[in-house]
Amino acid sequence: MPNTPLIDDSYLQQAVATVLESGSLPQIVQAGHPVLRTQARPFTGQLSAHDLAALIAIMTETMRAAPGVGLAAPQIGIPLQLAVLEDQYEVTPENAMVRRREPLELFAILNPHYTPVGHELASHYEGCLSMSGWQGVVDRHAAVDLAYNDEHGSARTARFTGWQARIVQHETDHLSGTLYIDKAYTRSLASNVNYSEFWANPDVTDAKAGLNF
């Protein structure tokens, strides 16, 4: 890839140091930046416990300020298999029911891998902090099992369903260089303005009819 630096542990550590020493929240990189299309490096102890905790704290603050429900390290220019996830936003009862959306407590995942549970898929609009201003409909597994390491190095597994499963899949995909647009119905793509005006319903029935996807 032209003009792409060698991604090794030294590069990774320098990228983290740059973020930790900046004194401000990092910018969220946008689609077209090569780091978003790079296989992130597994975490194997390249960072001290102190630096890892500091990075997770900065990522959490950046996610909340955006605002969003997840942020992967590549989105702030760090090609590391790390993401933070949290969903504490209030939604209408209809939205919560149709999208099976329940609050998700803040947690960090390292080296995650998800496995579908069953064959059920759910179709909903989703956006991405690295594709600011746009949303698209993506079919996601309705339930997944997630295997990951926590920030203390402990191996964990957990099952997620509904909207939580969507967040897990979206953020884990980032770590393999995949954006939601790769899986979206391209005819469903809508600017935030048009999504709010025409398609901001709990389900995608009207959007499917209106946009022919």
Rank of each mutant, 00 (worst) to 15 (best):
T4W: 00
D8L: 10
D8P: 05
L12T: 06
A15D: 03
A15Q: 11
V16L: 02
V19R: 08
S22G: 14
V29T: 13
Q30E: 12
Q39T: 15
A40G: 07
P42T: 03
F43M: 05
D51Y: 03
I58S: 10
T60P: 00
P67V: 10
G70K: 05
P74E: 03
P74N: 03
Q75K: 05
I78N: 01
P79L: 09
A83T: 12
L85V: 13
D87Y: 04
D87L: 08
Q88V: 15
V91F: 12
P93K: 05
M97V: 11
R100G: 14
R100Q: 14
L104E: 07
A108T: 07
I109A: 12
N111Q: 08
P112E: 09
H113D: 15
T115C: 04
V117A: 12
G118M: 04
E120S: 14
E126Q: 13
C128I: 06
L129K: 03
S130D: 08
S130L: 07
Q135M: 11
R140W: 01
A142E: 06
A143T: 11
Y148K: 07
N149Y: 07
D150S: 14
E151I: 14
G153S: 05
S154G: 13
S154K: 12
A155D: 08
T157Y: 06
T157Q: 14
A158F: 00
R159Q: 15
W163L: 06
Q164N: 15
I167Q: 02
V168C: 05
T172Y: 03
T172N: 07
L175D: 02
S176H: 11
L189V: 11
S191I: 02
N192D: 13
V193D: 12
P202A: 06
T205I: 11
G210R: 05
N212T: 09
